[in-house]
């Protein structure tokens, strides 16, 4: 479904992605973690070309991103993206946030798009907020609407870039809940997160990055119990007991 082959990327002189090789199968859930500045956000943003890659090959859903003939907009319609900062459109109602792309891109009739949007809102537990505006919602609610907005395009892949990092602790659960259900429904997901409970429960693999390099790639059980790489050990130690 997603395949990185020898991918590099530079910001000026900074080598943010260094020889990335990674395969994600259909239906798989991959969690990417690592210290800040490790390149994990950049990695996930290359998958839908919010960041172009420098070198190497990246194939997503059968489309080669380096190929000039690949229609990036078409690719993005098949790949949902959820941001750390939600990025809902503040001038549109919840319903309009969700229906904008299906109406404009898929030419879905408005009535039908709204019905689908309502079904999605039901799924994320926010049906009663259909006419609210983003500023009237809590962070957790905004993020759930953002997930519904991404799902409205019926994507084949969902990408999550630290979806709970901007949330107050008591709201993290409601967002993870939605993501868990999505993962169990068989969606292909790449998730940048430090929520290790989530990783344990649904991730097929955990990918650990530092300084733009994938240092370790292992099933969650193995990764959490006996991480091979020293930096992964340190990272986990700090994550589990931040006071040390």
């Amino acid at each position: 479904m997603i395949e990185f082959r020898g991918v590099h990327k530079w910001f000026k002189k900074l080598h943010v992605l260094n020889d990335i090789n990674l395969k994600v199968q259909a239906g798989e859930v991959v969690v990417v973690c690592g210290p800040s500045g490790s390149g994990k956000s950049t990695l996930i943003r290359t998958i839908n070309q919010l960041e172009p890659i420098g070198e190497g090959t990246l194939v997503v859903d059968g489309m080669d991103l380096a190929d000039k003939k690949t229609d990036i907009n078409k690719l993005r319609a098949e790949v949902g993206f959820v941001f750390q900062q939600f990025n809902l459109y503040p001038h549109l109602s919840v319903l309009a946030n969700i229906t904008l792309a299906p109406i404009k891109i898929r030419n879905t009739p408005r009535k039908e798009a709204e019905q689908q949007a309502l079904a999605l809102l039901e799924r994320v537990g926010l049906a009663e907020k259909r006419d609210a505006y983003p500023t009237q919602l809590s962070g957790g609610q905004q993020q759930r609407v953002a997930i519904a907005r991404a799902l409205a395009m019926k994507p084949r892949i969902m990408l999550f870039d630290e979806p709970t990092s901007a949330l107050d602790p008591e709201m993290i659960g409601e967002v993870l809940d939605v993501m868990l259900k999505l993962a169990k429904s068989g969606m292909t997901m790449v998730v940048v997160t430090h929520e290790m409970g989530f990783a344990r429960e649904v991730a097929g693999r955990v990918v650990f990055m530092d300084h733009g390099v994938i240092l370790e790639e292992a099933p969650p059980e193995q990764f959490f119990k006996q991480p091979k790489h020293e930096r992964a050990q340190q990272f986990l130690k700090q994550l589990l007991s931040p006071m040390h």
């Binding site: 993005r76 990025n87 809902l88 459109y89 904008l100 404009k104 891109i105 907005r149 991404a150 395009m153």
Partner: peptide, 26 residues
């Protein structure tokens, strides 16, 4: 904010549509 354009683009909107429906109205 740049995130508005990014959000619009990542739902598959073309750059001119992101400008017309998301960025310009705000």
């Amino acid at each position: 904010p740049k995130g508005q354009t990014e959000a619009a683009l990542s739902t598959g909107l073309k750059p001119w549509q992101a400008m017309l429906y998301v960025v310009l109205p705000q």
